[in-house]
Design a protein around this nucleic acid. Sequence first.
DNA 1: CTGAAAGCGCTTACAG
DNA 2: CTGAAAGCGCTTACAG
Lengths: 336, 336
Amino acid sequence: MKIDIHKVALKAGVSIATVSRALNNSDLVKPDTKAKIQKIVDELNYIPNPIARSLSKQSTETIGVVLPDLVGEFFMDFIHSIDEEAYKRNWHVLISSSHSQRNLIETLMELMGSGRVDGVILMAPQIQDGIFEIISKSKTPVILVNTCGDFNGTNQIKIDNFKGAYDIVEHLIKVHNYKKIGMINGPKGNCDAEERFAGYLSALKKNKINRDPSLIVNGGFDVDTGCIGFTTLMNQKIKPDAIFAANDMMALGAYETAKELGIKIPDDVAIAGFDDIYLSQFLTPRLTTVHVPIYDLGSKAVKYLLAAINRDKKRQRHFEVLPTEIVIGSSCGCKH
Amino acid sequence: MKIDIHKVALKAGVSIATVSRALNNSDLVKPDTKAKIQKIVDELNYIPNPIARSLSKQSTETIGVVLPDLVGEFFMDFIHSIDEEAYKRNWHVLISSSHSQRNLIETLMELMGSGRVDGVILMAPQIQDGIFEIISKSKTPVILVNTCGDFNGTNQIKIDNFKGAYDIVEHLIKVHNYKKIGMINGPKGNCDAEERFAGYLSALKKNKINRDPSLIVNGGFDVDTGCIGFTTLMNQKIKPDAIFAANDMMALGAYETAKELGIKIPDDVAIAGFDDIYLSQFLTPRLTTVHVPIYDLGSKAVKYLLAAINRDKKRQRHFEVLPTEIVIGSSCGCKH
DNA sequence: CTGAAAGCGCTTACAG
DNA sequence: CTGAAAGCGCTTACAG
């Protein structure tokens, strides 16, 4: 038999209002009464129905997380950190990835319009038209994760793609004296990709190396396009002496292809990546890459979102760029 | 201004009951009326409040997923497949991993007692006392994923650890003629680990190889214990000619250590793993391992859970063991 | 400090 | 086919 607040009230000899107050730790309830009620609650193993509470309070204590389509090990850590942070505060996490079948917009609208969650963490490196309209029209607080640009009034948290890329390319230039640094770019329109590319260009410029369009190829952040990109770069007359892949997955593709073609890393060509995915430490040679503070990203996203929910007007907004850090392996030519 | 069912009813000139029926596609509503209501709904961009609906219908159309503490790339695919399957049916997914701070039992009890979800997918290779009490006492349907044994009355789905291990060890014996096959075991009490170990023992026995306790070491399913296990095995007088690691992460540890010690795989010692994690295809040499149908595991877990929820009495239960398949790389000695 | 009552936004048995 | 009303299980302003 399902036990509800009435049963507790009956057994405790008080009204349901008092039970409710006691459980919400209102100081309108006498300590004695609280204790008495708590005893009954424990006895009966009563758990208040969160759905009813949500309806009444008009808040769900649940945050929604919307993820992009492609998911990798990266995201598990992200979710884990979100869950951890949410748990600490007794909040819940509703997951929703956008699928081939449905687009981000749809997912987002449904989540935000429905009242199923009090706020949304939206990871959207590939921002689509219409998203801002939805966000700004809605009263549901949102925090954008890894989204390009600075959208006024919207909470944002992201990683420092630019500086990470800048630093690692500068490492290739200054420490190793490479002159022909190729790049396998990420997908068009992807924020992370664009910022990393900008960092690459900037490092070249600051170090007075001319940008050579033949050394820049496009990729899609996956292994296959890494293979293709690497092949393209290495089949040209002017071969690069180092290649910066915009993420580790593409660097991995480069490794694979290098092995097949008998090209030695870093002797024939140096490689650097971005993300520091778990896998990269096990590559031979260890990949030089950029570490991304993924745990921090998740837990801060939760903190800022809850702050936004609690102050309920979106007055003061959060905008933060988390630092990235280069991780030196031997794929760049460093000895270990 | 938040728009609710009353606004829609007012504008459509009908009662809220009729609006509700129309939206639930009841055939008690005349097609004309339905059309008229739908038009208003679209105009106003009305989305019924799922919380109110849940309270009224006593069902949430949400499934809870409880994950163990250690999470890896494996789990992201699992969640993704669950989300995909749930989405198809317009269900939602609430994630809850057990943390250092809280144990599985607590997480589970809260989730099941609260009415926040209609059913739970519980991945628990390391089953704890008390879990069955909770499950059998509760009316909330549960499906156990990768849990050892056959618990009467409980829906279960798992992978064929035994056969996977058996097959891969038999491959080492029959194809490569290894005689001294070591094993780096998984954690004590872990279901997957125990079944894999049983498969190993059975393959030895069937092929008339005596079990040699000095060739069996314990591990914890992580890279570090793989390193330690490998070192231990290779430092003995009688060295193994092949090692079966109970999962790929430990095989990875073996690779690392082999590299450091200058031991060649597979020439000095063959290696086989289990899981076929994404990473393993990029190891040199490619790891011979056992593929686990993780996507299937997730989507079937959802299907069976929803079936259990819908038939609401737990009459007919689902129990399924998904086949595993060996993936031949060159770490076992096969040419590629 | 406590209780009776209204309200959160829906669904659905009941009556017509 | 449609509507008035009760009910889902809580919270909280109001009155005492």
